[in-house]
């Protein structure tokens, strides 16, 4: 269990991790750099879920905002000709933030299974719309061009993952993780613990539990959307099945639970483990990949309720 005291700002840790990734770039083989970048993208979505988990909430439809981010970026690129990754990211975040703000008025009163199910329904509605919209390529989706940054365009010989894109993803993920870290240490983060532990008491402390949930929901949505933008820019393609379908949302929940809610680093670590294991599993035991996921999830639920991060806590000897 996360207790109040092990939320502590890890500014130095985040800066160090980002610098290490950037410094390692020349040494990383292409697949490793790609895995790292994709893990940051997915990790952002799981980070959003982690915020919700700290509020005692689990969304089985976070693919909704992942898809909104991905599609917003892809659409802006395809139909408006925007290639700047910064602008595309802002577009994705703005789209998801607006929709989450509106939907938030419905979900902020829901808890437990009903919160999970309502979000599942939202994401399945978006999936249905995307899969039936011919202009967006229906179930096949459509492709996204190579992004630029502030006028810097990669040469024709460079692959999709340039240092510019890699650096952009690493630095923005680090910034976002730092912000979330601050938020979790602020009254907003503690209000989340209040919602999870005893909402009635929180209300009698003059805090709007619904308002706090609404805020967390919007934050989680923006994080998922940014993850969606990164993923689409890295993969170069977007489809409904790989973004909005409930199985994708299930994967994100898996990663968030695997990592645990103890530290902002946890979702990124868990997502990296997830990506690495998937790469090898799909190569050597493709028919047992989901089984592996399922067994891992069961083991985490039964024996490691604090997720991978609780191992770190245990090593540091402060999980009294």
């Amino acid at each position: 269990m996360t207790t109040l005291r092990n939320i502590r700002p890890t500014t130095a840790g985040i800066a160090l991790a980002a610098a290490a990734l950037l410094g390692l770039w020349p040494l990383l083989p292409a697949w490793a750099a790609h895995t790292a970048a994709v893990s940051l993208g997915g990790g952002l979505v799981a980070l959003g879920l982690m915020i919700l988990i700290r509020f005692g909430l689990v969304s089985f439809g976070q693919g909704l905002f992942f898809a909104i981010g991905g599609y917003a970026a892809a659409l802006a690129n395809q139909f408006l000709g925007i290639t700047d990754m910064l602008v595309l990211s802002v577009a994705g975040i703005a789209a998801a933030g607006t929709i989450a703000w509106a939907l938030g008025y419905i979900v902020r009163g829901h808890r437990g299974i009903f919160f999970a199910m309502l979000n599942l329904a939202f994401s399945m509605i978006l999936f249905g719309i995307l899969a039936k919209t011919v202009a967006l390529g229906s179930t096949d989706g459509f492709s996204v061009g190579v992004p630029t940054l502030l006028g810097v365009a990669p040469g024709p010989e460079a692959g999709r993952l340039t240092f510019v894109l890699f650096g952009f993803i690493v630095i923005s993920s680090a910034l976002v993780a730092w912000m979330v870290d601050r938020i979790l240490a602020s009254p907003v983060g503690y209000a989340g613990q209040g919602v999870r532990e005893n909402e009635l008491r929180l209300r009698y402390l003059g805090v709007s539990a619904r308002g706090a949930v609404h805020l967390a929901y919007i934050m989680a949505a923006k994080l998922a959307a940014l993850g969606g933008v990164f993923t689409v820019l890295l993969i170069g393609h977007v489809t409904p099945e790989d973004t909005a379908y409930w199985t994708k949302s299930g994967e994100f929940v898996f990663v968030a639970i695997l990592g645990g809610a103890g530290n902002v680093a946890a979702p990124f670590i868990a997502q990296t483990v997830f990506e690495l294991v998937r790469t090898f599993a799909l190569q050597y035991v493709p028919e047992a990949w989901q089984m592996l996921l399922g067994i891992t999830l069961l083991l985490v639920i039964l024996f490691l309720p604090g997720g991978l991060w609780s191992l770190v806590d245990r090593l540091r000897g402060r999980n009294a």
């Binding site: 689990v58 299974i113 999970a116 929940v253 989901q290 089984m291 399922g294």
Partner: peptide, 18 residues
């Protein structure tokens, strides 16, 4: 109850491959 949902989701994943 949400942890229980996740446990049955884990079973679901395993049975898919089985």
């Amino acid at each position: 109850e949400i942890v229980i949902v996740l446990a049955t989701y884990a079973v679901f994943l395993v049975l898919e491959d089985v």
